[in-house]
């Protein structure tokens, strides 16, 4: 069953288009990574899915309902981001204690244990927390809701290395114990790659790729060889990225296809790419790289 079903979703702020014809489906009980560069529209998409903002056109369905102003969606989904606020008049402990009234599947034990593990101060106010602690608290809150659709928007912003690792581990363990749909947005795919089953890659407000992790890895390859050869091999192909390695050699990234075998036979140096690299090349602005700036 589809947890999320988006058809041609558009959203604009003033003159810029934040989302353009976003179409994808998300089936349940998967951890999906929402990957994109800064400003790709990840946050906007998540806010629409959580019913916080309204999309301009197209159709958004979460649990078969339009999430905007829908109680069922609100009760079964949560968006954890660094803009989450809680009243200053309540301590962290009181916030956690008032949550079960709203979230029927709230896991008090998990919340308490994580809270103790991360050594948060139960008498502290949410806004007085440091950036990292606030992110940790939000994460604890989000995980403990056990919402059928749990969304994290850049959850590890501000967390230190150790907490990040712990967070991913906690997420995975809790997911295995209570399978549900989890959507994590990040611009560091490499950091969350080991968690993900699916990747939803968006760029400039458009879905570029929606596939499972292995497919993404297979999607493109890098090839290195003499300049002329590389140009021959990639002729007519969709070259995602190319650069001069030195005087004679050229490096190119392109979509995997049948020509590849021939290239291999002709002595091309073919390199497999990581999912992270594929995503990076697919969303790069130009064929060149940062090196071109310094030419």
């Amino acid at each position: 069953m589809n947890v999320i079903d988006c058809q041609k979703v558009n959203k604009g702020y003033r003159r810029t288009n934040a989302l353009e014809d976003i179409t994808f489906q998300l089936t349940d009980q998967k951890i999906t990574g929402l990957i994109g560069r800064n400003g790709a529209g990840k946050t906007t998409l998540l806010k629409i899915l959580a019913g916080l903002t309204k999309h301009k056109s197209g159709e958004v369905n979460v649990f078969g309902k339009n999430p905007y102003n829908n109680l069922l969606v609100s009760a079964n989904s949560i968006l954890v981001d660094d803009q989450m606020t809680f009243p200053d008049s309540l301590t962290l402990e009181e916030i956690l204690r008032s949550a079960p009234a709203f979230y029927k599947k709230w896991d008090t034990q998990l919340a308490v244990r994580l809270f103790q593990y991360f050594k948060l101060d139960s008498k502290q106010q949410h806004s007085k927390l440091s950036k990292g602690s606030r992110a940790t608290f939000n994460m604890i809150f989000g995980l403990s809701t056990h919402c059928e659709l749990t969304m994290f928007d850049e959850p590890t912003n501000g967390m230190d290395e150790a907490v990040r690792t712990d967070f991913y581990r906690a997420l995975l363990k809790d997911y295995i114990a209570h399978p549900r749909s989890i959507l994590i947005s990040s611009h560091h795919l490499s950091e969350i790659e080991h968690l993900l089953e699916d990747i939803l890659l968006i760029h400039k407000g458009k879905v570029v790729l929606h596939a499972d992790l292995d497919e993404v890895k297979e999607y493109a390859v890098a090839i290195q060889g003499p300049v002329a050869d590389v140009e021959k091999w990639t002729a007519g192909e969709e070259v995602l990225h190319s650069k001069r390695v030195d005087e004679q050699k050229q490096y190119a990234v392109f979509k995997k296809n049948s020509k590849l075998e021939r290239a291999r036979l002709e002595g091309a140096n073919i390199q497999m790419l990581t999912a992270s690299e594929v995503c990076m090349y697919m969303t790069s602005e130009s064929k060149g790289g940062i090196d071109d700036v310094f030419k």
Binding site: M1, V3, D28, F63, L71, L72, A75, N76, P87, S89, L90, E94, S98, A101, F102, Y103, K104, K105, E148
Partner: peptide, 27 residues
């Protein structure tokens, strides 16, 4: 299989009222 929590408007409103009464008690 998804198990969606069904929640009525009344119960959400009541929970919110209770929460807000605590949250704004400083007034």
């Amino acid at each position: 299989m998804m198990f969606l929590s069904n929640i009525s408007l009344t119960s959400v409103v009541l929970s919110q009222v209770k929460f807000k009464l605590s949250a704004y008690s400083g007034l």
